[in-house]
């Protein structure tokens, strides 16, 4: 399972970078979305995959049940990261919308006035 996830994460990173290197700002934002998803999946995979064992201790038990138990921390971390990237990307969408209105261009190459 880890191998599959690793490949998926790699593909996501590659796609994200490819999209970010395009000239269109829409594709840039799509690239950013993919990038944050790739990072979340990496966090998920690196934190250790367990299947069929929820991160819950049955009622009445004071210690961990025997066998594998999912790590609740990675799930909490990813939930937080998803919330954050949701907020940030919502902002990015507003930003490109405004930028498009002001610049009237979907081309990054036309946006180099501040680099001179």
């Amino acid at each position: 399972m880890e191998v599959v996830m690793a490949v998926v994460v790699g593909i996501l990173y590659a796609t994200a970078l490819y999209m970010m290197l395009r000239r269109s700002i829409i594709k840039l934002v799509i690239g950013l979305v993919l990038l944050s998803n790739a990072a979340n999946l990496l966090l998920f995979t690196a934190g250790g995959l367990t299947s069929g064992a929820p991160a819950l201790i049955p009622e009445g038990m004071s210690a961990l049940p025997p066998g594998a138990v999912a790590d609740p921390l990675t799930q909490a971390l990813i939930l937080t990261a998803i919330v954050i990237s949701f907020g940030v990307l919502a902002f990015a969408v507003v930003l490109i919308h405004r930028a498009y209105e002001v610049v009237q261009q979907d081309d990054m190459d036309e946006m180099k006035d501040t680099d001179r």
Binding site: G87, A90, F91, V93, V94, H97, R98, E101
Partner: peptide, 17 residues
């Protein structure tokens, strides 16, 4: 509050357009 601020602002921009 924060989600609706974004959504309503976007809707407003759309209507202005």
């Amino acid at each position: 509050g924060s989600v609706l601020t974004i959504v309503l602002n976007l809707a407003e921009a759309e209507e202005n357009a």
